[in-house]
Simulated assay, not measured.
Amino acid sequence: MAATAAQMRTTLPPEDLEAMLDLSRFLGQVAEPAALVGPDGQTVGLPAEVHRVLMDVVHAMSQGRAITVAPVDQVLTTQEAADFLGISRPTLVKLLESGRIPYECPAAGRHRRVRLADIVAYQQQSAQERGDVLDTMTREATDLGLYDDTAADYTAALRRAREG
């Protein structure tokens, strides 16, 4: 299934970011629940989830980054999935073929399709694994007394570890 314009939309930030920066500062000071005011003065409250998404979008765009809005059940091409993860397409294909990320091949096609939800799950699992490794490394460094050493001692210990 290819993404349609209604399912997935990428928006570039404005050239002049000043208004976006003002909006970002404003939203940073607004306590939930926030509300939208229409041109006729009608006010509609924003659910907390929508307020958080709006804050995330405005924050990213105020930094000059484009935003893509897509439903979680969105199906992506391998290139779109690789772009989302910030990795190359060949690296993504290796993850697919190793079973780390599920995929499907619609009909008798050769092209793989990946669910956005599966990409997000992989991203979260990967972040958790990296955090666990860093926690283990920190614990081991503490146990070895490396935090008590000088920078030169630490550099020498790293050199020995790499050689060993």
Rank of each mutant, 00 (worst) to 15 (best):
L95N: 01
R160K: 15
A35V: 08
A157S: 05
E140P: 11
T43N: 03
Y122A: 01
V72A: 15
R65M: 12
Y147N: 12
R159K: 13
H59A: 10
V69H: 04
D73G: 09
Q42E: 15
A107G: 10
C105Y: 07
V75C: 05
R113N: 02
R159A: 15
R112H: 07
P71Q: 11
D135Y: 14
Q63E: 15
R130W: 11
H51N: 01
A6T: 09
A5L: 13
V30D: 03
A3G: 08
R160G: 13
V93M: 02
D153Y: 04
D73L: 07
L158D: 07
G99D: 04
R65T: 13
R113Q: 01
Q128I: 14
V50E: 09
D22H: 15
L144K: 09
M137E: 04
M8G: 01
T78A: 07
A107N: 15
V133D: 02
E32G: 10
P39V: 14
G64E: 06
V72D: 12
M55E: 02
I101A: 01
A127K: 14
T77L: 03
P13E: 03
H59V: 06
Q128T: 15
P14E: 12
L144E: 12
D148G: 15
G164N: 12
P13G: 05
G145Q: 12
S24Y: 12
A6C: 00
F26Y: 14
G99V: 08
I67T: 08
M55K: 13
M61H: 03
I67M: 13
A66L: 04
L144P: 03
F84T: 11
Q125M: 02
D143E: 15
Q29L: 13
Q7I: 02
R112C: 05
C105L: 14
Q74D: 03
L36A: 06
Q123R: 14
T77K: 02
